[in-house]
Amino acid sequence: MKKTVPLWVVLGVVVAAFLFTRLGGNRYIYFAGYFVLQYIVLATAWNVLGGYTGYVNFGTAAFFATGAYTALVLILAFKATLPVQIVAGALTAGLLGLGIGYLTLRLRGVFFSIATLALSVVLQTVVSNWEYVGGGKGLSIIRPKAPALFASHAEYLFVVMVLLAAASVALAWWVQNSRVGRGLAAIRDNEEAAECMGVPTLRLKLFATTLSGCLMGVAGTPFPYYVTLVEPGSVFSLDYAVNSLAMPMIGGTTTWVGPVIGAVLLGTAQQVATVTISSELNLLIVGIVLVAFVMLAPQGIVGLVQRLFHRRSR
């Protein structure tokens, strides 16, 4: 019974989100909600590799963009529907994760991080010179008519993102509580000892890069319809790498719930700041909050709560 619980939770959340869109209301809510949800997916994806396994990825934008550009190509070539784009984006980004994992996982620590950052730069250069997808100046696309049952595309994308976020979190939950997750934790704690205890470290790390890349790609696939202007500058924005790293760090990296807390807090704060103060202030907020957390609560909010709880139970 226990195994089906996350499935029901995911389904319940999606239905609730759908009913919420039936209430109507200000379209901006869906736009802002989408932004936060997208970061729940990205932060959760980052955490599978960065938090569970201990390999810090600076190349979130590369995987996100792989998803977004896969979707764009499918729209241009076949007018593919969103579900098709999502599946294709997941596959391409997952493959990229697998390939990059294979090439770079022999590098440890900061060298792995540099390699992922380089990946992002290389891909951006490639895409900027690819005329079919608009090259450096980008491409505008027109959204198709919203599917039945939805008042507009904003609501539709919002519900899709709710589904993706809930599914990603459920997946992360499953990984964390499985034998695989315990193997990943052993790798994070001491890779050599893990290998000596029978953990197939290379295979598990490849699993982590593939799953992480796949989910990051998934987060990017609805992006073309969300913004309707796809250009390399925004798709490969540093924001993605910084945010998807900062959110789990702030929430706490060792559990599935950390990235969710971080994404909701930081994502909301950024949206509020964009509307009320200035859109340029976003990263400044992230930076300040991150520095504060690294100094005051290196285990994130989850670690902070756990520590309080422990003290009380003693």
């Binding site: 315990r182 704690d189 029978g198 060792t254």
Partner: peptide, 29 residues
């Protein structure tokens, strides 16, 4: 074949009991 390390390399984020569960779940799978 299993070896212990000269300088102990425990899995630091886990409890002592959980440290033993890793080889039990993997090596002795």
């Amino acid at each position: 074949i299993c070896r212990s390390f000269q300088i102990p390399r425990p899995f630091t984020s886990m409890t002592v009991l959980e440290n033993l569960c890793i080889p039990l779940e993997y090596a002795a799978h």
